[in-house]
Design a protein around this nucleic acid. Structure first.
Length: 583
RNA sequence: CGGGCAGUAGCGCAGGGGCUAGCGCGUCUGGUUCGGGACCAGAAGGCCGGAGGUUCAAAUCCUCUCUGCCCGACCA
């Protein structure tokens, strides 16, 4: 491609709002352009890189038996009503009516569409297992897009769906995808770790996320450097040191103004581990009978030294949404904010007790009376029932649930995820097959997603320096940047031609610009191999090859240049391929 | 959806009731340069986000609105 006629404008200054290096360079180098909040165009460079990522995605999906399909972005609302997600998902899903006044949605994912397909196509166990995938636009009306391509509203995603007879089959294909994902990320050059994750709106039980660790990430990852345990904080476990001792008699004490755990500990001269903390939320629940959403108070109790992880809380209570409760909502059930406990509470609320409270003895808890607490409260004796579960938020410094060593934490960007969906969608939509025993059974499903743009954004974040991008050769828009500094275009044109004929992807800077401008743009765009044609080398019949990654410079005779560049391309590619791994 | 900030030339910004709205970069024309964001000369480019209002006079003050950015709630 000749730069003199490209649909491109590089920027000398960072557009305002570009807060990360990767995002800044993608904008400045002309990979992307913003059209609205969370809505971007891909310019020629961005499009080419994106296509290279897609090619890798296709190759790796085909490698594990995936077949490419394409499902519509516009879905009739009916199928979303069948699974209930039409109601359980809020404003994040864009909805509209067609001319016949039918409800339509913009698909934010394709479980419904693919399940609708499957129920028409899969009838027998003999066809199973099956794996289909697509690379398709998703629209999610995110309330707060940010950080350039990291979190957007419209994006291209590779989403795959598997169908199996049983859990065993699902686990096999899940493992295939698990490995394929590592191959995919390593082929793009992006370092990732896999973490156990929350299944969120997808439903299902087992799920993993592929995380690119970076300060620009929005997720917090809990990591055990000792044994390798990793999990998204939303689900991360840790070892709780619990002390069970003989129960002492309940005792009410005066604790004026001790509304917080800190105040309470100071006042009574005790440690946080000896207290029980109350956290009140209001959850939205879907009532199966009335088919209506309803709100209910959730009263969660946890040992005073820990915090409640809201995603865990919403998981164990099966609330679709969760928000902090107002004071009146709490008092309605006989509990007094600041001095609250479950003791003496009444009415129909959801009680959740963290293991740390259920497993400890003689904790100090509120007396549900202004200015009073109880000493020696014990779950099972003084209050009982509800859900006993792990709802505690893990953090660095806590102990690993596996090996007991100290955990650390890191920020990460989720670039891919895999879910074992089970029969959640096939049950809801009646997608069944006839098994060997003649019985109709629901298909056992899994789904597997990778965001293309987000992956590109992470790569830009990982591969840059003070001069610009430096993407790996597998995803760079072109392999070679041919920079001509000589007036006589013929020599450069000839070399350009020769490289093209050898199948090399060349970006040819044939613009009438000063050397400084050309070099600066070359660094900014950051193609892995730069060829410079200048009078300096031409005197000896040579041109210069510079590697963007290392800065290494070598001169070659003009007649050898195509061969040498091919050799460099091979070397750069091999660097990536030697590091392909499957987890 | 709450809190904060901002919309003035393609990009980055200045100007905050009073003449024809500026600066840097970029763009165009001519010339000189030509291995790390060159120089000289000339030029083009604006409904000051939009709508109302106050005023003799509004980019500037007021009201409403739209859009974008950051933080939070939220989310893959």
């Amino acid at each position: 491609m000749r730069m003199s006629h490209m649909f491109l404008r590089t920027l000398r200054e960072a557009p305002s709002g570009a807060d990360s290096k990767g995002y800044e360079y993608l904008l400045r180098a002309g990979f992307i352009s913003q059209l609205g909040t969370g809505i971007f165009s891909l310019l020629p460079f961005g499009k080419r890189s994106s296509e290279k990522i897609k090619k890798i995605l296709r190759e790796e999906m085909e490698r594990i038996g995936g077949e490419e399909i394409e499902m519509p972005v516009v879905n009739p609302a009916d199928i979303w009503k069948e699974t209930g997600r039409y109601y359980s998902i809020d404003k994040e899903m864009a909805r509209f009516k067609d001319r016949m006044n039918r409800d339509m949605v913009l698909a934010m994912t394709h479980e419904e569409a693919v399940t609708a397909l499957a129920r028409g196509i899969i009838d027998s166990y003999k066809k199973l297992p099956l794996l289909v995938y697509q690379i398709q636009t998703k629209f999610r009306d995110d309330p707060r897009p940010r950080a350039g391509l990291i979190r957007v509203r419209e994006f291209s995603m590779k989403d795959a769906y598997s169908f199996d007879r049983d859990q065993e089959g699902l686990e096999k294909v899940y493992k295939d995808n698990y490995k394929a994902y590592f191959r995919i990320f390593s082929r793009t050059g992006l370092p990732v770790i896999v973490v156990a994750s929350d299944s969120g709106m997808m439903g299902g039980k087992i799920a993993h996320e592929y995380m690119y660790l970076s300060p620009i990430g929005e997720d917090t990852i809990i990591i055990c450097p000792e044994c390798g345990y990793t999990a998204n904080r939303q689900v991360a476990r840790f070892k709780k040191e619990l002390v069970k001792e003989e129960m002492k008699p309940l005792e009410k004490v005066k604790t004026p103004d001790a509304k917080t755990i800190d105040d309470l500990c100071t006042f009574l001269s005790i440690s946080k581990e000896q207290t029980c903390k109350a956290v009140f939320m209001v959850g939205t629940f879907f009532n199966e009978e009335t088919k209506e959403e309803e709100e209910k108070l959730i009263a969660a109790f946890i040992r005073g030294d820990m915090d409640v992880e809201e995603s865990k809380l919403s998981n164990v209570t099966r609330a679709s949404e969760i928000r902090p409760a107002h004071e009146e909502e709490i008092r309605e059930y006989g509990m007094v904010p600041g001095f609250a406990s479950a003791i003496g509470a009444h009415g129909d609320f959801v009680l959740v007790v963290d293991e740390s409270v259920a497993g400890s003895s003689n904790l100090v808890a509120g007396a549900n009376e202004e200015g009073y607490h109880y000493l020696n409260t014990n779950y099972g004796r003084d209050f009982s029932g509800g859900i006993v579960a792990d709802i505690a938020s893990a953090r660095a410094g806590y102990k690993c649930p596996v090996c007991g060593k100290e955990l650390t934490s890191s920020k990460g960007v989720e670039v891919g995820n895999i879910f074992q969906l089970g029969t959640r969608y096939s049950d809801a939509m009646g997608a069944t097959f006839q098994d060997e025993d003649g019985k109709e059974k629901p298909l056992v499903m899994g789904c597997y997603g990778i965001g293309v743009g987000r992956l590109l954004a992470c790569l830009a974040e990982e591969y840059n320096d003070e001069n610009g991008l430096s993407l790996p050769i597998t995803v760079a828009p072109y392999q070679v940047h041919l920079v001509s500094l000589v007036k006589d275009q013929q020599i450069a044109d000839d070399i350009y031609q020769k490289l093209i004929e050898r199948g090399i992807e060349v970006l040819y800077d044939d613009r009438k610009e000063s050397p400084g401008v050309k070099f600066a743009d070359a660094d900014l765009i950051g193609l892995p191999i730069r060829i410079t044609i200048g009078n300096r080398g031409l005197k000896e019949g040579k041109v210069e090859v510079k590697l963007r990654g290392t800065g290494e410079v070598t001169s070659y005779a003009i007649e050898d240049i195509a061969d040498e560049v091919l050799r460099e391309i091979e070397k750069e590619t091999k660097k990536i391929e030697d590091n392909i791994f499957e987890g």
